[in-house]
Write a protein that binds this DNA or RNA. Sequence first.
DNA 1: TTCATGACTGGCT
DNA 2: AAGCCAGCCATGA
Length: 118
Amino acid sequence: METYESIYAVVRRIPYGRVSSYGRVALLAGRPGAARLVGYALHALRPGAGDEVPWWRVVNHSGVITNGYEPALQQARLVAEGVAVDDVGRVDLRRYLWDGEEGPAAYFTGSACPSSSG
DNA sequence: TTCATGACTGGCT
DNA sequence: AAGCCAGCCATGA
């Protein structure tokens, strides 16, 4: 399905150690409002896809892991990349949210100050 | 084609 | 801050 490919293409653009929201991916994929479709596309990935698509770097708009397949796996994947995950599976989008930038510079575009709290 | 479901999101109370 | 409702698009029966 072309629609899915456009979604996977965006998910693959998510840099290492960064996360994005379903709505964000849907927007970048050219399907604004179809956040549900993103989750559906990732659901269609299945373990057979392997690491071809970094699905674990996708969380909801609140930074919470709403993964219904392997929520523990996604959390582990993120932590393995250096992404801080809360006990409830929540990620600090203010630090890791991928705004769609190509380079890692986006990490410094935020007003957050990691050395202040974390 | 129609009805129901889902790894979602924004606005109101 | 937390909970509820409607809209979005594609899949499956």
